[in-house]
């Protein structure tokens, strides 16, 4: 089931919310945010078998990827082709497992829920205890990450800003989460979560979600126009849609390459992230005492 399309069809407020967010994002002309914004995270480990009940260490290994990726301090940045190095952006976000739960009590930021569901689909059942999952923490204060078994080889999925709070957050297959434990190559470097959190911050796929066409856009000017997604690990340059000589930016987190082959956000993507934090996710800024353009 398609999350974005389903919400467009079933949530009467969602299309207007998306349009408002896009208008706000398009017309926003401000300098890049300087303040580093802390994002409290709750990880819901939803498990049926022992291996799905991933260790705290595996959860921590994911945070240890997410943070350098969103601060442009990831050690593989030196693999970005020379032509795109000036575009590499520090998103100035710092993710930390929550230390206080919604009731004000101390927490590890990790919730464990046993389920009878062998594998979840992308129908959001994992996001509610009533359907075998785990209820979200308030989405205006926490980034919810559900880690579980997913059916059909799905690595993860997200929800754009503007959707229902009850399903806000990202879902990641436990075998694609973190860098240790059940994490399995070639998705064992934590980049599925980086990609999904990118969507949570309103980033689109860099090929424009138009199949293999050249007309779709990610609404970001500094990611080259590209046909379909790149899979695996292409060699530079990978040309499509007459975007030579440099070709597709397959090293971008919002392409579909293997974990080892994606390692950057761009300045244009950062502008969308900033707009998201000044707009639909502004509650996270005010919680941190940060002004939108601070």
């Amino acid at each position: 089931m398609l999350v974005h399309r389903r919400l467009l069809d079933t949530d009467p407020g969602y299309p207007d919310a998306c349009a408002d967010i896009e208008n706000f994002t398009y017309w926003r002309r401000v300098p890049a945010r300087q303040a580093v914004v802390p994002i409290p995270v709750v990880v819901h480990v939803v498990w049926q078998t022992g291996s799905q009940n991933i260790s705290d260490a595996q959860v921590h290994s994911q945070l240890a990827v997410l943070n350098p990726d969103f601060r442009a301090t990831n050690p593989d940045l030196d693999r970005v082709p020379e032509v795109w190095r000036p575009l590499v952006a520090d998103a100035r976000l710092e993710f930390a497992l929550a230390t206080v739960d919604p009731a004000g009590e101390p927490t590890t930021g990790i919730v464990r829920a046993r389920t009878a569901v062998p594998a979840f689909d992308s129908d959001d059942a994992v996001k509610s205890a009533a359907t075998g999952g785990s209820d979200p923490w308030p989405a205006d204060r926490y980034l919810n990450i559900w880690v579980c078994e997913l059916a059909g080889g799905l690595l993860g999925y997200a929800q754009f800003p503007g959707g229902p709070p009850a399903t806000d957050g990202v879902v990641v297959l436990h075998r694609g989460f973190g860098t240790t434990g059940t994490a399995t190559a070639p998705f064992d470097r934590g980049r599925t979560t980086t990609h999904e959190v990118g969507h949570w911050l309103n980033l689109r796929h860099i090929w424009g979600d138009d199949g293999d066409g050249c007309h779709g856009s990610d609404f970001v000017a500094d990611t080259p126009n590209q046909a379909g997604p790149n899979l695996g690990c292409p060699t530079f340059p990978s040309v499509s849609c007459e975007n030579g000589p440099d070709g597709d930016m397959f090293v971008n987190y919002l392409d579909y390459t293997d974990d080892a082959c994606m390692m950057m956000f761009t300045t244009g993507q950062l502008a969308r992230i900033d707009a998201t934090l000044a707009g639909p996710r502004a509650s996270l800024l005010s919680m941190a005492g940060v002004t939108p353009d601070g």
């Binding site: 999350v3 974005h4 799905l154 690595l155 999925y157 997200a158 929800q159 969507h199 979600d209």
Partner: peptide
């Protein structure tokens, strides 16, 4: 079916 805008399969 293809991967949709937030990665869930879309019809």
């Amino acid at each position: 079916w293809t991967a949709g805008p937030v990665d869930a399969p879309v019809r």
